[in-house]
């Protein structure tokens, strides 16, 4: 296990967060794995004075919407999912890119209802017409904690507001505490929790909707029904 992961594991244990510790340990196992993701959402129209302030600190960071013609430059700047960008544009996704000078430093993707259901860890999630799904929000490592994420999110909310959308949802890995904190500070709340236990090829899912008193346990054998994300 790498030193950084060991530090995270030690921190999880010392904080008494044994679920996070179990998830981190299971990543190293061959016969069993435990995963938990949170589906978090927020109202697009919410007032975000902190985000406005952080955006105003970085006037040199510009944001623009990209399209299919930008696939080669996106692939060069963000090679981690290079093979997916053309498919996403064909499907109808939108992509915003943050640039410093001419150089891309961050990107964020958005899916709308007409692009189909969201497949998230074995569950199919249906968007309402006025909702959207944020995914693959990525900041180049050397630009992290320098304002690019805040600028991207501020401009993304403006972009979505101009299109009359109501809410945005995203998937956040439970063990990624910094990302959970980021989303919480931007006003996101947990709409759904998906647990997946994988043991020697058998997958069992537990889904929970906090605040709505609804829980569901099923195996992969029962198929993958679609769930509405809101309402």
């Amino acid at each position: 296990m790498k030193a950084e992961k060991l530090v995270r594991l030690r921190a999880a244990v010392s904080e008494g967060d044994y679920l996070r510790a179990a998830i981190l340990v299971s990543r190293k196992l061959r016969v069993a794995q435990l995963d938990r993701v949170l589906i978090m959402g927020t109202e697009i129209h919410a007032d975000r004075p902190l985000l406005r302030k952080l955006r105003e600190r970085e006037p040199g960071l510009l944001v623009r919407e990209t399209g299919a013609a930008d696939v080669p430059s996106l692939a060069r700047a963000f090679p981690h999912h290079a093979e997916r960008y053309a498919v996403r544009f064909e499907r109808g996704d939108s992509c915003l890119v943050v640039t410093q000078g001419e150089a891309p430093v961050a990107m964020g993707w958005i899916r709308l209802r007409h692009t189909g259901v969201i497949n998230e860890m074995g569950s199919r999630l249906e968007l309402a017409r006025e909702d959207c799904w944020g995914h693959d929000t990525y900041v180049l490592p050397e630009h992290r904690a320098r304002g690019a994420f805040a600028v991207l999110m501020w401009e993304m909310f403006r972009f979505l507001k101009a299109r009359g959308l109501r809410s945005i949802y995203a998937s956040v890995a439970w063990e990624n505490t910094p990302s959970r904190a980021s989303h919480s500070r931007l006003g996101y709340q947990t709409a759904m929790v998906i647990d997946r236990l994988w043991i020697a090829g058998l997958r069992v899912y537990r889904l929970e909707w906090p605040g709505r008193g609804r829980k569901l346990v099923r195996s992969a054998l029962s198929g993958a029904p679609a769930f509405p994300l809101s309402g």
Partner: peptide, 26 residues
């Protein structure tokens, strides 16, 4: 694991305002 990127920026803003300094992104 304590501070996310937004938290780091908040801390920078707080330090700038408290100590009258300017912290560049780099």
């Amino acid at each position: 694991d304590l501070l996310d990127s937004i938290g780091m920026l908040e801390l920078s803003v707080h330090l700038e305002e408290t100590y009258g300094i300017a912290i560049a992104a780099e």
